[in-house]
């Protein structure tokens, strides 16, 4: 069965940890890390990467445009 999978790449140094992407993700993929970046923000990361469909909801709402989205179809 064909399956569509996605993944995101997060620019952790640009992320300000606002959590807007976390609540926008329909699949519950993202969460805030316990680690902090150079500015002291808890950046977001893929807590549940297998659930990502590459819908890009997180990326279009990110105020700092630090999310890049890829999507691939597996036959």
């Amino acid at each position: 069965m064909a399956k569509i999978k996605g993944t995101v790449v997060i620019d952790t140094e640009h992320c300000k940890g606002c959590k807007v992407c976390v609540v926008s993700c329909p699949c519950g993929v993202l969460d805030l890390s316990s680690q902090v970046n150079g500015k002291g923000y808890n950046y977001c990361y893929m807590a549940n990467p297998d659930a990502c469909t590459g819908c890009a909801s997180c990326a279009i709402i990110c105020p700092d445009t630090c999310i890049t989205v890829y999507r691939q179809k597996f036959e």
């Binding site: 996605g6 989205v69 691939q72």
Partner: peptide
């Protein structure tokens, strides 16, 4: 998922500069 150009769905537009915005986290301005 292969992170290649053909699988790219969304990336930062080239019209935005690389500067980190001074806005507070989560600001609508961004």
């Amino acid at each position: 998922v292969q992170k290649t150009q053909e699988n790219l769905v969304y990336s930062r537009t080239k019209v935005l500069t690389d500067n980190v915005m001074h806005y507070c986290p989560g600001c609508s301005h961004g």
